[in-house]
Design a binder for these strands. Structure first.
Length: 130
DNA sequence: CATGAGCGG
């Protein structure tokens, strides 16, 4: 995949190397297919709406959020996009992975299962918010 | 204040 190669050093792609970039040693091999997508390489000023607008063109976006630092409040440069189905998620990845967004190359891949599809929490009791 | 290769609430 071009995304894997780009992940190795997409920055050199714009630089004058005059030589072929080295292959990735062991890039992350396609995560498990899920409707949850992990988008990285976002611009510091990209918003959740921008993500939804960009990914909604390939499928129905259920949830789109750009992750920002909780402490400083600055954008971390990555976000999450949840599609209605894993099928649309795959289309969204193939349609937005390695593409330009807000002037930056973004990468889309399946995100880890932090919520949903979980049987139950290992710890007893409930989580107290704040 | 600026920031970057990273998986949130």
């Amino acid at each position: 995949m071009a995304a894997a190669a780009a992940r190795s050093g997409f920055r050199r792609m714009f630089s004058v190397s005059g030589f072929t970039p080295p292959p990735p040693p062991a890039a992350r091999p396609a995560a498990e297919p899920c409707n949850n997508l992990f988008v990285s390489g976002l611009n510091k000023r990209t918003t959740s709406e921008g993500l939804r607008e960009a990914f909604s063109k390939f499928g129905q976006v259920i949830e789109a959020r750009v992750i920002t630092d909780r402490i400083s409040g600055y954008s971390r440069g990555f976000g999450f996009v949840k599609y209605a189905t894993v099928i649309e998620a795959g289309e969204g990845i193939k349609g937005m992975d390695g593409k330009f967004l807000d002037g930056w190359v973004i990468f889309a891949e399946y995100a880890k299962q932090r919520e949903t599809q979980q049987p139950a929490q290992p710890s007893s009791g409930y989580q107290y918010s704040n």
